[in-house]
Design a protein around this nucleic acid. Sequence first.
DNA 1: TAGTGGTCTAGACCACCTT
DNA 2: AGGTGGTCTAGACCACTAG
Lengths: 263, 263
Amino acid sequence: MAGKAKSGNTAKPGKAKPKKTKAPRLKRAPGKPLYAQVEEVIRRRLIDNYWKPGDVLPSEFDLARELSVSQGTVRKALNDMVAENLLERRQGRGTFVSEYTERRALFLYFNLIGRDGERAMPVSRILACEQRSATEHERDRLQLAPGAAVIALHRVRSLDDKPSMVERLTLPQELFPGLGEDPKLPENLYRYFQGEYGITVAKAGESVRAVAADPLEAQLLGVMPDAPLLEIDRVAVTIDGRPVEWRVSRCNTANYSYVAERG
Amino acid sequence: MAGKAKSGNTAKPGKAKPKKTKAPRLKRAPGKPLYAQVEEVIRRRLIDNYWKPGDVLPSEFDLARELSVSQGTVRKALNDMVAENLLERRQGRGTFVSEYTERRALFLYFNLIGRDGERAMPVSRILACEQRSATEHERDRLQLAPGAAVIALHRVRSLDDKPSMVERLTLPQELFPGLGEDPKLPENLYRYFQGEYGITVAKAGESVRAVAADPLEAQLLGVMPDAPLLEIDRVAVTIDGRPVEWRVSRCNTANYSYVAERG
DNA sequence: TAGTGGTCTAGACCACCTT
DNA sequence: AGGTGGTCTAGACCACTAG
């Protein structure tokens, strides 16, 4: 998965199916419950891109037969993975691998909402894109080896036509070869990562602070220097926990606020 | 539940058990699944304080017999409520109503962490406490009728002995009679609400912005006026969705940051 | 009509905790 | 030893979606 991928497999997988990690014939005992083993098998196939976002999985009965467990055990495993947002189930249709729909991207990974409670889709303008050695801080956040290369993006995002966020993204160069060459990147980056590089972002940790706008940010966002900005520091990781993106956003929260649910 | 309660029933309920909303003998059909009806019964008993935080529930079999459903249906209902943080299950022990332990309070409702990743317990000092008519904004947040009275608290909270947050809390006076008279309130307010007033906070919604410190805040926190502060606006609600506390915290995030998980 | 997931049941056995 | 929740199975029926 490291080479010079970039295939563009948004729709049909053709016939070159990636490896299916063989049918394991699960047996109980090893300390782990059966349903956990079922989850591991399915998770592995998601990681290996054997099943891709949008794909439909075999039915509960088929999976149960393949893995030599009961349908109820498969059901528990699938429902657990639904709770993790990895799968979606639709009655009468089947079980699907979660996709990065606009709605989902907005709801899961874009948490600025307006005074009216509406989420607005941002519009981005790239200011700079370079490829260079990772700084120590970047290596730390992305778990990279010394000397590793990164792609660094700098962009401004507007909400309702008003520049509202300044973002700096750092990506491991090894995982995203050629990404910087594309002058226009789509707004839904995580879907692009999945479609172009087979990299699926499964979750992200965010830490938020208040900071003062530096002169450049102030100019870009049309605020006074030292105006308060909300800084969102996010590391996005794949299903297997590898960090694949570090993003620091500085937002003018005069008209928008960052939301979270607790409990 | 409105009177002049304040009983102090932290441990034993004595013999004056609150009403148990009778055994309903559930039957399938009304559009709602059986397990959802089981959840409603249990939820109602939590709301009515028939079962209080720390109490142990009857076993799955006993509940199943009482409600005339199968043990598996009760199990699904209980597990759903565990996912909502309302219940906790311990193998070999039983099913318990969630308590506001220090750990739980910190983990669920205190989301400032230090650079080292540690959560510190804050120490509060009350600056003012008054009882007055709710403003329009307060009535809106707490869903109060015009003319309703509120208790307004103003306090400073320190982390590692350094004043780090200025908080304004607004509580419906009707729900917390006599609260202002207690000169020293405990650090874990939500446990106090439960123990003294029988009011259980089940979840909270937060919205976060960056703001500039006003002169008073700057003085209290030892920062320059207009320094950037993180404003956390939280409304806490009970199990049945009634808002019971509005809290606005303004935090110096020079040494702490607000964390959230996404996905 | 056939196939899917959703609900519900009944029963077996295991792992853990208490006594 | 007895009781609790945790796992696993097998089978029935329902609700929804599709062709």
